[in-house]
Simulated scan of single mutants.
Amino acid sequence: MSVRAKFKLVRREEGSEGFSLKFEPVTSGSPENDQFFKYTPWGELKLGTINAEAAREFTVGDEYYLDFTPAPRPS
């Protein structure tokens, strides 16, 4: 089973240890966002990276799908 959520980047900061990205779930703005808010996880997501090129791929205000798919267990 997998779960898809939709989050919006609300803050991107650069600090001495790299970049911090803060995402919040979508709650409105389109019929699709209404559905995501109704049926998927809520909360906040904070990611960090030292890779400036990767951090530039994320734009404050843009929305992103987050797919949660179980990883295989080590054998």
Score class of each variant (00 low, 15 high):
1 M>V: 13
2 S>W: 00
2 S>K: 10
2 S>M: 07
3 V>C: 07
3 V>I: 14
4 R>H: 08
4 R>F: 05
5 A>H: 03
6 K>C: 15
6 K>G: 04
7 F>P: 13
8 K>S: 04
9 L>T: 09
9 L>E: 00
9 L>Y: 00
10 V>L: 05
11 R>H: 10
12 R>C: 06
12 R>T: 11
13 E>Y: 02
13 E>S: 12
13 E>D: 13
13 E>G: 11
14 E>H: 08
14 E>C: 08
17 E>R: 12
17 E>H: 07
18 G>W: 02
19 F>S: 07
19 F>T: 15
20 S>M: 09
20 S>G: 13
21 L>H: 06
21 L>M: 09
21 L>P: 12
23 F>G: 11
23 F>R: 10
23 F>Y: 05
24 E>G: 07
24 E>V: 15
25 P>Y: 02
25 P>N: 06
25 P>E: 01
26 V>P: 09
26 V>D: 05
26 V>C: 03
26 V>I: 11
27 T>G: 12
27 T>V: 14
28 S>Q: 07
28 S>F: 02
28 S>W: 04
29 G>F: 03
29 G>V: 11
30 S>R: 06
30 S>M: 03
31 P>G: 05
31 P>F: 02
32 E>Y: 00
32 E>K: 13
33 N>C: 06
33 N>A: 06
34 D>H: 03
34 D>T: 13
34 D>Q: 12
35 Q>P: 00
35 Q>H: 01
35 Q>M: 11
36 F>A: 05
36 F>S: 10
37 F>S: 15
37 F>P: 11
37 F>M: 06
37 F>H: 13
38 K>A: 11
38 K>M: 10
39 Y>M: 10
40 T>A: 14
40 T>R: 09
41 P>S: 05
41 P>C: 03
42 W>T: 15
42 W>Q: 15
42 W>K: 15
45 L>P: 04
45 L>D: 00
46 K>T: 15
47 L>T: 12
47 L>C: 11
47 L>G: 14
48 G>K: 11
48 G>P: 00
48 G>A: 06
48 G>Q: 10
49 T>D: 07
49 T>P: 14
49 T>K: 01
50 I>M: 08
52 A>H: 02
52 A>S: 12
53 E>M: 03
53 E>Y: 00
53 E>R: 10
53 E>V: 14
54 A>I: 13
55 A>Y: 02
56 R>W: 00
56 R>F: 00
56 R>L: 04
56 R>S: 13
57 E>A: 12
57 E>N: 14
58 F>Q: 08
58 F>M: 07
58 F>R: 10
58 F>N: 08
58 F>G: 13
58 F>I: 15
58 F>C: 04
59 T>F: 01
59 T>L: 02
59 T>R: 06
60 V>T: 11
60 V>P: 10
60 V>D: 04
60 V>S: 02
61 G>Q: 01
61 G>T: 08
61 G>K: 04
61 G>A: 01
63 E>T: 15
63 E>L: 03
63 E>C: 08
63 E>Y: 03
63 E>F: 02
63 E>K: 08
64 Y>F: 03
64 Y>Q: 08
65 Y>N: 15
65 Y>Q: 06
66 L>M: 14
66 L>H: 07
66 L>K: 05
67 D>S: 13
67 D>F: 06
70 P>W: 03
71 A>M: 09
71 A>C: 05
72 P>L: 03
72 P>T: 09
72 P>G: 01
73 R>H: 05
73 R>V: 13
75 S>A: 08
75 S>E: 00
